[in-house]
Design a protein around this nucleic acid. Structure first.
Lengths: 340, 340
DNA sequence: AGGGAATGTGTGCACGTGCACACACGCGAA
DNA sequence: TTCGCGTGTGTGCACGTGCACACATTCCCT
């Protein structure tokens, strides 16, 4: 009867103990399943737990164990690429699957503003998570620095951080881009261009580099159309610009499936048929790829696998393994559909 | 020097106190900013905090305060509608904004399997969150039951739970569907159909009900094509089926923008032009709406606002307010673009 | 018969924090 | 002097848990 709106007091081990007529220690042994407990005591305690509706207080357990059985999943995107990039969602689910299998709770933390940065840093410092998975960290990121300072087990997805010692899981953007461009050239195209997105990010720059390598001596910079984002609209406008400048283009490597979808629309506007007049390939193998008309030939990005491997790396580090053994590059098979 | 892989011990108030030559109590007063502290002590303590790199241990604070300054955001979707439904991401960001403004941490919990359900229930029971925002709860949901049992402050987004006493924030699906259907009829269409998705969920059923009401005596059940999901593919296939059965259809209300996008593709296949031959309207005003050709006329769903209002409701309840005053229905203005 | 396992149970301490209380000091008024 | 008050500081307890230790009982082996 302290104050009416306050929720009722939670049952503790002590309540269970008095209810079952034993001591706290015995109750603890039953809950954690170790040590010797007589059958009669066990039964009495289990009944008491049910009766008083006992659930362990995780905060207290975390405090004494120095372990929270939770791992943070940090998404640090300026506004909300979170919404547009289907990969992030897939990475998240992959990580959740792996953590769930080891009975860890995933805690998803969105960093959307500077205010968030500070709060998340406090949260991490507070010992609420045993480790973190970091997606798309920036250079000189305050969150990254906090993680280093706490020497919190961490795994980066997508790109290694500045320091070479941390664990990361990624794909070979450059090699994959080179491979699919080569495949596109093998279909007999002679003037192959690229809609190169997000050149300020490693993934974007690497994909362009791979494209350039594949073309070798045939590379012609006027066939590269840079656009700011991995978005449908960027693809639409980029393709329009490319067509206006180079009407004879007969092949296009789009930096992502969303960009490719926009490019297909621009080609349709211009009356070009795909793949007859122009071959188009994308990158990601996201939902866009099968939703397009014709469906896209693209590079499969194993997003769920990235999340899963990152989670496994963090769990290994929580168990005391060294991070640097975990620098993993996953395979990116090419999926050939109808667009080239 | 206990064990090399273990991370170094965190600094505590005690370390700060000895470093600054004062007692724990004084340090606490500086950190929490109440009580009398001399200027000299304050300076010494602030310097000591910087020097030893002190950050409060949130677990300990949670334990003693019975407050975690965190709110759970629970997404309970069978497989991963999470990825496909852009509304969920927007709701999430809206909630994060509101919580962030009150200096609360949002903790996003994904429930993807039965195993997750159990673990999340334990997590909630553990006192790691002061309240929860629940998106798309199911009937007889175990998570919902846990929340009730703990009498944890909660707000449901989308639809009220079985019990009428809990807080929820939603939109008037039926009224909005009725309004946009009426607008579509006012453009002079005579045979207006609907691609009705997800009839097993309240939102889907309510949108169909609104459509039916708008047509009144003119309602013809053969013009309703039910499809399972709010997806592009469902829209594509649904529209094909509807066209095959009713070639004279000249207006379509699609249950979501993704469905409408699929319908546009089917109409294009069939050689119908939009909006000349057939008027199409959608629902959600998501990214699909502006990405389509022509851009969609649709019902604006204030997803970010839903998240924000839900968060505010939870925070009010944490402060002791009664939940039942928070049963909020947000406005859903119609956005008229080119597709009808 | 006596010593030592094996089995079963209770108690004290620690985790790091907030808060209530006690205490110390200087000063002015009764 | 003695009391009260404002200011500044130290200490003990509580939060709920896990774990190490101490203790109690039984049983077997020498």
């Amino acid at each position: 009867m302290t104050s009416p709106p306050s929720r009722r007091r939670r049952a503790t081990v002590h309540d269970v103990a008095t209810e079952a007529g034993v001591s706290r220690g015995t109750v603890g042994r039953v809950i954690n399943g170790d040590g010797y407990v007589s059958a009669s005591a066990r039964e009495a305690i289990e009944a008491a737990i049910k009766k008083v509706g006992y659930v362990p207080n995780t905060a207290a357990r975390t405090l004494v164990m120095q372990r929270s059985q939770a791992v943070g999943f940090i998404v640090h995107e300026p506004h909300s690429l979170f919404l547009e990039d289907p990969n992030i969602g897939e990475i998240l689910l992959g990580a959740n699957t792996a953590l769930s299998a080891s009975d860890y709770q995933m805690v998803c933390l969105i960093v959307d503003s500077d205010r968030d940065t500070e709060r998340v840093a406090r949260y991490l410092s507070g010992g609420f998570v045993d480790g973190v998975i970091i997606v798309s960290a920036r250079q000189d990121d305050p969150i990254t620095r906090v993680v280093e300072r706490l020497s919190l087990p961490a795994a980066f997805v997508g790109h290694p951080p500045d320091l070479g010692t941390a664990a990361f899981v990624g794909i070979d953007n450059r090699g994959s881009a080179r491979t699919i461009t080569t495949r596109l050239l093998e279909t007999g195209r002679t003037r192959v261009g690229m809609i190169a997105a997000a050149l300020d990010r490693d993934s974007g720059a690497d994909r362009l580099a791979g494209f350039t390598e594949a073309l070798g001596a045939r590379f012609d910079p006027t066939l590269v159309e840079p656009v700011p984002l991995y978005s449908y609209r960027a693809g639409l406008e980029g393709m329009r610009a490319l067509l206006a400048r180079e009407p004879l283009v007969d092949g296009v490597f789009a930096a992502s499936d969303a960009v490719a979808a926009g490019a297909l629309e621009a080609l349709r506007e211009a009356g070009r048929s795909v793949p007859e007049d122009v071959g188009v390939v994308g990158f990601d193998d996201s939902a866009w790829a099968t939703r397009c008309q014709p469906p896209l030939s693209t590079v499969h990005q194993p997003a769920a696998g990235l999340g899963q491997r990152a989670a496994e790396s963090v769990l290994r580090q929580v168990d005391g393994a060294e991070p640097e053994v975990d620098q993993i590059v996953l395979e990116t098979p090419i999926v050939w559909r109808g667009s080239a």
